[in-house]
Nucleic acid binder design. Structure first.
Lengths: 297, 297
DNA sequence: AGCACGTTATACCTTTGCGGTATGACGAGA
DNA sequence: TCTCGTCATACCGCAAAGGTATAACGTGCT
């Protein structure tokens, strides 16, 4: 089956006439007859009822018509998209973010950007860091709020540090350390840690190791999870402790408390984009993000 | 551009080798070279970087690859769907409903159906009556909860009456009639009515006219709206009054009161499906709906 | 450096199959 | 019954896809 078959079928099905459709397509009627017949043959399904006098859609034909039109529309959109991308045109910025980490910073940047570029819309996608990396690579995202910069550099993306957050320890309420107002990193040494999986949050593990190393602690990671909320739930269930940036405090859980750690650890958060061909709006947006990030400290 | 081009491109892009891809596709390498070149030509975009030794994707190529795979997947799904439909196989029932009208009846039917047909899943689609008619016609829905039976019969669908609801008048709070516990239809004669548009709720207008006729009233329809909620908001804004089935009472609004009308009017609600080729599960589900509808009175 | 082996590109031939023309078969309406 | 319009069939020409042979070029091994 080729797109040509679909184009022909749509024409015939909408005109309900081979002759009519042939005129519209600037082709000859017998050709249409043959192509549609071969399409039906390949599908093993009759799409049209033909009498000598008129053509009507079968039940299957009607649903296939709808699907075909959709498919052709997507095909056209795909072609247009790759051409636009080639021309470097940007009429929308696709931006990925981790809702639980950037809920505070993101909204402030949007209004500011809209003022400068009112004609360019921003599409937001809530996805994990790992998904964002893949989407950036495939061109489905123009910019990602992806946290730690180590995995970014590793993949050859451009990036900029936009903010740094205090790091907190998430502890089960019944943990002895929860009684204190601050937690010494060293004191966490005997505990088990909950980590984020490499698939969804690349670099978390190595960041955790490095952070603990500075306090001379080697973290024992009990379990990896995919979502921030799952992490907090795991902590709440008493499975272990976790080190998280302060935004995660928003994810309240009855059995989890958050305590600042000593020595204080700050986590840097970055935005990342593809190096090649950075568009002016993207560049401007990054500036805005950086500026807003600074003004929040 | 044909699907063939996309199939070839995907193979080459994933193998990152023309020779390799040619083997997988059981074709000759020069043919691939030519086809891909003609694709790039038509798009006006270079998709691959070729050196004598290796092939790599360009930036545009990467995003086009993702789009192509998606497109091919949709094409395959389209073909499979029409074949399944031809064989009369049903592995899922697609059911449309108007959330504001059938929130009470629908959930009860689902559990019962699941018991009888555990292997058949039900996909629910919240859509207006008008959209449901179109979807039924195109085969995107198997069954629709579409209310009034007059527009159904008009379109040649099969249908069954499943319930009848009392009709209420929706009035602005400051309307003098709102003070009474019941409203005479005749008393509504001087007021303006809010109606549902033909596009989203076919038949509402003629139902309204017929209903009022019986009380010797000719409704003056001020405005048509698309959604139940919009209707209530319009009433709340003092634009007019409306006749609605009792479920709509759930859509509370601070400035709107609902009063039963005299003489009492009942509205019949129907499900509709396409006559041809009714599947056993569909038939069974309709029975269930009818049964549940009866037991609710 | 030179050779073997791999890659993609080019040239040329074969063959498929798409489109075009002519015409047949058939039904509707005058 | 005749005309007109419709879709189907038969046949032809040709564009274009596929196949074979080989060139052009890089890489890596000796």
């Amino acid at each position: 089956m080729e797109l040509r078959h679909l184009r022909y079928f749509v024409s015939v099905a909408e005109a309900l006439s081979f002759t009519q459709a042939a005129k519209e397509l600037h082709t000859a009627q017998p050709s249409l007859t043959r192509q549609i017949k071969s399409l039906e043959n390949e599908l093993g399904v009759q799409l049209l009822h033909r009498t000598k006098q008129q053509v009507t859609l079968t039940d299957e034909g009607r649903s296939f018509l709808a699907d075909s039109k959709r498919l052709l529309a997507i095909a056209a959109e795909t072609v247009e998209a790759v051409r636009r991308r080639h021309r470097g045109e940007v009429r929308a910025l696709n931006i990925g973010y981790v809702s639980n980490l950037f809920y505070d910073l993101l909204p402030r940047t949007l209004a500011s950007f809209r003022q400068s570029f009112p004609s360019i819309s921003i599409n937001l996608f809530d996805m994990s860091c790992g998904d964002q990396f893949r989407a950036l690579d495939e061109g489905r995202l123009d910019l990602g709020f992806v946290g730690l910069h180590e995995p970014i550099a590793l993949r050859g993306f451009e990036f900029r540090t936009i903010a740094s957050y205090k790091t907190f320890a998430a502890l089960p309420k019944n943990n002895p350390l929860a009684a204190k107002t601050r937690v010494e990193l060293k004191a966490l040494a005997p505990m088990f840690f909950i980590g984020m999986s490499e698939g969804s949050y690349p670099g978390y593990r190595s960041w955790l190791t490095r952070t603990c190393d500075r306090a001379g602690v080697t973290p024992k990671v009990l379990q990896d999870v995919d979502l921030e909320r799952t992490m907090i739930q795991a902590v709440g269930a008493g499975l272990g402790v976790a080190l998280v940036p302060e935004q995660v405090k928003k994810l309240k859980h009855e059995n989890v408390v958050f305590r600042p750690v000593t020595p204080a650890v700050t986590t840097e958060a970055c935005v990342a984009w593809k190096g090649e061909n950075p568009s002016a709006p993207l560049q401007a947006y990054v500036e805005i993000v950086e500026h807003v990030g600074r003004s929040m400290r």
